[in-house]
């Protein structure tokens, strides 16, 4: 096995600008590598034509509530908050917008109906709602996602991060074949690259998991598997939703609620995997 190069301080890499609040900026060779990684991931299943779509980072709270997300993951949610638009409220805000700690002195808040999307694929289900599919539907998107965490680390745990997702909506057989094909392609890729990746059963990071029925069901009926790099960084996941989204959004196939699955990749974590495997020198980077 190839020796993993040790980069002790990722935030010191040229082209990587890190802010302690979990925000990352890329430029130069690292930005080029980021784009190449996305192109590589897009090439894994060349004979399926994925309909690529682009979404706003906002997603309606009502839509997330349909998925029980607000109950299940309140600790991860980030909301775009705006001030009440009345003259008095705006005037009061401008008088002292920041306090001595650098926190915004929020005056009256306008009603908040949106959330910054925590996952890329949620947009697809709303868009496909109340439809009958004539065949399998293959979709992909690259989205900036937002998850509030208790601590942040460059590339591996960020408040804002990039997620490339592939979704299949279809019959159970079509959806499982989609997952199997991805797993086979990724297995070959990781072996070829000599990346220390194992596929492991996982559960979502629920709030109060022990009293959350969905967590219990995920333990009993595993639907999520992660690609774990070097024992501790999940660089992607396979998620079999069964008919959950089909039922919630009335998407049908052959008269029944459609099955769905997604394969998700965290692009900054892939960047981490390349750098941790190949080291900081651009000439050694292989993807």
């Amino acid at each position: 096995m190839q020796q993993i190069a040790q980069i002790t301080d990722f935030s010191a890499l040229p082209g990587l600008h890190w802010q302690e609040n979990g925000q990352l900026s890329l430029s130069g060779s690292l930005l080029r590598l980021y784009k190449k990684i996305d192109q590589k991931i897009l090439s894994f299943i060349p004979d399926i034509i994925f309909d690529e779509q682009q979404f706003s980072p906002f997603i309606s709270a009502e839509q997330l509530h349909k998925l029980d997300y607000l109950h299940g993951f309140p600790h991860l949610i980030t909301m775009p908050v705006t001030l009440d638009s009345s003259q008095a409220s705006l005037q009061a805000f401008t008088a002292a917008p920041l306090n001595e700690n650098g926190n915004l002195n929020l005056t009256n808040i306008a009603p908040c109906r949106e959330v910054l999307t925590p996952a890329a694929c949620y947009h697809f289900y709303e868009k496909q709602s109340d439809t009958e599919l004539n065949g399998p539907c293959y979709l992909t998107t690259l989205c900036t996602c937002f998850r509030r965490e208790s601590a942040y680390h460059p590339l591996t745990r960020q408040w804002a991060f990039s997620m490339r997702e592939f979704v299949c909506l279809g019959t159970q057989e079509e959806v499982q074949e989609f997952l199997q094909r991805f797993e086979k392609a990724l297995n070959s890729y990781f072996q070829k690259q000599l990346w220390p990746v194992i596929f492991e059963q996982a559960t979502d990071p629920f709030f109060n998991p022990l009293v959350n029925a969905k967590y219990v069901v995920q333990k009993l009926e595993p639907v999520k598997r992660e690609m774990i790099y070097a024992g501790n960084v999940a660089i992607g996941s396979f998620n079999f939703h069964r008919t959950f989204f089909g039922e919630r959004f009335n998407i049908r196939r052959q008269g029944e609620a459609v099955f769905s699955a997604c394969v998700a990749f965290g692009l900054e974590r892939w960047l981490y995997a390349v750098l941790a495997t190949c080291g900081p020198d651009e000439k050694d980077w292989q993807i």
Binding site: Q201, P209, L210, Y215, V216, K219, L220, E221, P222
Partner: peptide, 11 residues
Amino acid sequence: EVEQLKPGAFK
């Protein structure tokens, strides 16, 4: 114990 639940236990 929820954490000890194994896949298939409630099949």
